[in-house]
């Protein structure tokens, strides 16, 4: 984790209001792997908070990172207008990321919408594992987000506006295949209702393999000091910090 100057190498719209940015790091970061995030300034002094984004890809030397973002408010709007060569400040890598057991061979990825982005670097972080990705998007426009994950995972996709006969969303898609696939673990990133549906399914179907969720929350410092981005623990009293203790948690340990 360090604070470094970064230069925008690329920042372009890949779908309707969805952008992909590539940053060149002034100081290389050694400890990046899939599921970690960065906190990046938006190049305008009146927006004093950095914005947290899941790292969607990185190079082996730790000199370059990519992330995707959707324009949702003023900060992402400002970010989307920045030209190549613009200098920003970033703190990275942050969070725990996806930590996979070496004995796990086959992993199910469940992602909804922008939730697919943090999985982009999975193939690099874990080249010898077999990934099957169950993805749900609002419509076909978001298909560009599957480019990176398609390089290392088998894809099953469902669109909200074209539901399949046997599956309306990614969780249902996964459940249809779960029993025949022999997964060792499940990783999920998406909106809260998706987490809840998965949690219910795990309980109802007595799915007993490890399952992890990558959470999103409005953040302050991004490094664990300010206690803004907390989530209640499901089994114990107290909160966990999404930025520092997470963003990846066992699904059974957090209140969703």
């Amino acid at each position: 984790m360090k604070e470094t100057k970064v230069i925008i190498e690329k920042n372009s719209e890949v779908a309707d209001s969805i952008y992909e940015a590539t940053l060149l790091l002034d100081e290389p970061a050694q400890d990046i792997w899939a599921g970690k995030f960065l906190n990046v300034s938006v190049g305008d002094g009146s927006h004093i908070l950095k914005r947290p984004f899941g790292i969607s890809d990185y190079d082996a030397k730790g000199e370059k990172v990519k992330f995707c973002y959707q324009v949702r408010g003023e900060g992402t709007e400002k970010l989307s207008k920045l030209k190549c060569g613009t200098e920003l400040m970033a703190t990275l890598p942050l969070g725990n990321g996806f930590l996979l057991d070496k004995n796990w061979k086959k992993i199910a990825i469940l992602a909804g919408g922008m939730g697919v982005c943090p999985f982009g670097g999975m193939g690099k972080s874990y080249p010898d594992k077999h990934f099957v990705a169950y993805l749900g998007f609002r419509n076909k426009k978001a298909e560009c987000l599957t480019k990176r994950i398609s390089r290392f995972a088998d894809l099953r996709i469902v669109y909200d506006d074209e539901p399949l006969e046997n599956a309306k969303n990614a969780v249902e898609l996964f459940l249809n295949e779960y029993e025949s696939e022999n997964f060792d673990a499940i990783l999920c990133c998406g909106p809260k209702p998706m987490f809840r549906a998965l949690k219910n399914a795990i309980e109802n179907r007595k799915i007993d393999i490890p399952c992890f969720v990558s959470l999103e929350e409005r953040m302050g410092c991004g490094v664990g000091a300010c206690l803004v981005c907390v989530c209640k623990q499901a089994k114990a009293e107290g909160n966990v910090r999404v930025c520092k203790d997470g963003p990846v948690f066992p699904i059974s340990e957090v209140e969703l």
Partner: peptide, 15 residues
């Protein structure tokens, strides 16, 4: 335990 989330909002040059 503190308050429910969201616990932060950005405002012009502030939070």
């Amino acid at each position: 335990l503190g308050n429910p989330t969201p616990r932060i909002a950005e405002t012009p040059s502030g939070i």
